[in-house]
Write a protein that binds this DNA or RNA. Structure first.
Lengths: 209, 209
DNA sequence: AAATCTACCTAATGTTAGTTAGAAAATGGT
DNA sequence: ACCATTTTCTAACTAACATTAGGTAGATTT
């Protein structure tokens, strides 16, 4: 029996590492497939092909297609959230609000475009996932939004953002600008950092003359 | 036999208008379903239910599910493009660049959020549509992007936008901010105009102090 | 080296959903 | 009212696909 949750094996030398590795390989393949074709359009055989395995064998590692989706969402959200928190905290407590928000934007985009198919899949296909899975992951997403809400609100409180701005509206527009990159960005072409700088500049300075 | 392309019936008094109406009703239902559940996850019986019809009957009006998707995309793109062009041209030739771009943003958002499930479906699920359908609609989308490119480039040429801005990058960020609204906007809550104004202000002025 | 376990495979099974064929309504002109 | 045509329904048919059952080769344990 494979482990259900990560790192709960009790200890036994070299471990059940073969299983662990295969399981991850399948999940990696699932994230890529979900990201590129959507959930419903992804066949278990697609995932199996990309993982170098037969479709039936996936059930040795997972109970269902839905479970895989759920885990992909979890990992993806954890990955961005951690990356963004780390990116901001690395600046230290004296950084300007602009730098803090800029770092958050950069970390979010890097995760989305360069680091994690899990994050990209989460963002791209969440809206078309089965209703029950969406519901189950609402709290995660809410927590992430809340982190950004504080980031922006702190900035406004300290006068780094206009007092009259509708922050929840602005936040959603910003998320849109960032998240939509997954629809058009060619990972080979431009680095995420360049997009991040443009987004930060647009958010703070605008483009008017 | 129902018409294949719109308005190609040769003439016969009151016309095959019953068929025309039903066909449109089915297509409306399809656009709503595609928008809300995605293409692959939408069953013909879902569309039929919402159109007050049985699944098999759809084939009197359409050859396949793919054909319906293709028509939804077509109508949706035509709708936004027309709305945006009209919105801009209505301003007359002496309007400021900021007003022209603002009008384009407003028209795009109104279409997306209030007017057309076809446009919303186009934007939301295009990325997960079968590859061949995507390819078939690339020219349409390219033409629309080109319109916006000129809109922004003209503004920059006349000094209404910063000379150093990477316009194609900015355009994609702006599209993202606008298109992502379809993922979170509650049509009941706020009017599209309010979002449009916020987006225009962000684009030109930014939020920094 | 016998017994057991791990990680996968092959081959059903059962259901779902797109599509089709032919029968019934509905419609509209005469 | 009758007939031709249009429109919709019913009932299969089919293919695809998630899931399950049972088998197997190789590793691990006893």
């Amino acid at each position: 029996m494979p482990v259900e949750l990560a790192d709960t094996t009790v200890a036994s030398g070299a471990d059940a590492s073969k299983s662990r590795i295969s399981r991850r390989r399948v999940l990696d393949a699932a994230a890529r497939c979900f990201l590129n074709k959507g959930y419903a359009a992804t066949r278990l055989s697609d995932i199996a092909d990309e993982a170098g395995m037969k479709a039936g064998s996936i059930y040795y590692h997972f109970d269902s297609k839905e479970q895989m989706l759920s885990e992909v969402f979890d990992i993806g959200m954890t990955a961005v959230f951690d990356a963004v928190r780390t990116g901001v905290e690395t600046l230290g407590p004296n950084a300007s609000h602009r730098d803090r928000i800029g770092a958050a934007i950069k970390a979010h985009l890097q995760q989305l475009l360069e680091q994690s198919d899990y994050t990209a899949a989460n963002i791209r296909i969440f809206g078309q996932a089965p209703a029950e899975i969406q519901r189950r992951h609402m709290p995660d997403r809410e927590a992430y939004r809340e982190y950004w809400r504080l980031l922006l609100e702190d900035a406004r409180r300290d006068g780094a953002l206009r007092a009259d701005a509708d922050l929840s509206l602005i936040r959603m527009l910003l998320f849109g600008a960032l998240n939509w990159t997954v629809e058009w960005n060619d990972p080979e072409k431009g680095p995420a950092d360049k997009i991040a700088d443009a987004a930060t500049a647009m958010l703070f300075d605008g483009l008017g003359t």
